[in-house]
Simulated scan of single mutants.
Amino acid sequence: MFQRFLASVGIGAAKVDTVLQRDEWAVGEEVKGLVHIAGGAVEQNVDSIYLTLSTTYTRESDDRKVSITQDLAKIRLTDPLVIKPGEKREVPFSFTLPIETPLTFGLKKVWIRTGLDIKHSMDPSDTDYIQVLPGTLMSDVMQAVQSLGFRLRQAECEELPHRLRGSVPFAQELEFLPVSGPFYRKLDELELLVFPRSLNELEFIMEIDRKAKGLAGLFSEALDLDETRVRFTVTPSDVATLAHRLEQMIKKYC
């Protein structure tokens, strides 16, 4: 009885360890791995083994930024089972990385949490961070932007107004600086707000931030009048002419 009490607070309880096939995955890929379970000092009834894919986004509140955790997917791996003392088990899994998963660009902002759901007990868990790479279409978009002389400066997930929300309350914003090419010294920055509709359809709101020129330019910049927003959609059929299309859209507002 005393051992069961200790297990309920995590002492001598079952342990879980998830091993992914790799730590880099592209949006839309099948994430695969094994959940290793080691029984503790007493027999325990496990209602389920589950995976939760999570990230964070930024919310502005009272003139300050707050980091909010958002679950992107929860995957139940098993029906109820009994883990005997000292027992070893392996549970294979796979799931599709959702299109809403933000790209990480080397930052630890997306993770998979594995948990054992045990009633009246502290749930054992394990957390694994992953690197999220762009899918094929997003890679093509980024290459088109970079071919115009832009370099990615940062990527952030920000809360959206209710009217713009889809299945998640945020969108990822990619901020590019002009370092060469036709827009060098003409723009301060170029921002892309990404709205994935499917693996083969991406919607964007592009914000073109013109460089201030003279007093009139400085006045416009102070009032945020130097920013222009353009909404457009990209599919695989657009890729061949995408760089030219982007160049023409940006030139229109330079």
Rank of each mutant, 00 (worst) to 15 (best):
P161E: 13
V239E: 02
F170S: 10
T55P: 01
G28W: 09
W111F: 06
T69D: 04
R113Y: 02
G12W: 05
D79G: 09
G33P: 09
G39R: 08
E60R: 14
Q70G: 03
F5R: 11
I99M: 08
F95A: 06
F2H: 12
E100Y: 05
H244M: 06
P161I: 07
D17I: 00
L152P: 04
V168P: 03
D47I: 08
V179H: 08
I208W: 00
A171S: 15
Y57V: 07
M249R: 11
A73H: 03
G12N: 14
H36N: 11
G115M: 03
I99Q: 06
E207W: 00
S48M: 04
T52K: 11
I11L: 14
S8E: 05
Q131T: 13
F170T: 06
K213D: 10
M249F: 11
F93Q: 12
W25D: 04
L81Y: 09
A222V: 05
M142K: 10
D17Y: 07
Y57M: 05
H244E: 14
Y184W: 14
T96K: 15
L20H: 06
A243H: 02
L6P: 07
K252P: 01
R59N: 01
M138A: 09
R229V: 02
G106W: 03
R59W: 00
E203L: 00
L81H: 04
T114R: 01
L215Y: 11
K15S: 14
V141H: 05
R89A: 09
S237D: 15
L6S: 01
D47N: 09
L218M: 13
K74F: 01
F183D: 08
Y253W: 12
P182Y: 01
C157V: 14
E24H: 10
E90C: 06
K251V: 02
V234G: 03
T78P: 06
S237G: 07
A7S: 15
M1K: 09
E24A: 14
L81D: 03
R151E: 14
Q154F: 02
M122E: 12
F95M: 03
P80N: 03
T56I: 14
L77E: 10
H162I: 15
P236A: 06
K211C: 00
E247R: 13
K32E: 13
S139N: 15
Q146H: 07
R113S: 10
T104R: 03
F183Y: 15
D17H: 14
L190P: 03
R113V: 05
L6H: 06
I37Q: 00
Q44Y: 07
Y57F: 12
A14D: 04
K109D: 15
L72E: 00
P92L: 10
L152V: 01
A216Q: 10
Q3I: 07
V141M: 12
G39W: 10
D47Q: 13
A216V: 11
D140P: 03
P178Y: 03
H162D: 15
T104H: 02
W111S: 12
R89F: 06
D63P: 06
R185Q: 15
R163L: 10
N200S: 06
D47S: 13
L133G: 01
G33E: 02
T233F: 01
R185G: 05
P196T: 08
R59A: 13
Q143H: 13
G166R: 13
Q44C: 00
T78D: 08
F2R: 12
A155S: 14
S167A: 11
D71G: 13
G214N: 08
K252W: 10
I11E: 12
E30C: 04
L72A: 04
E173L: 14
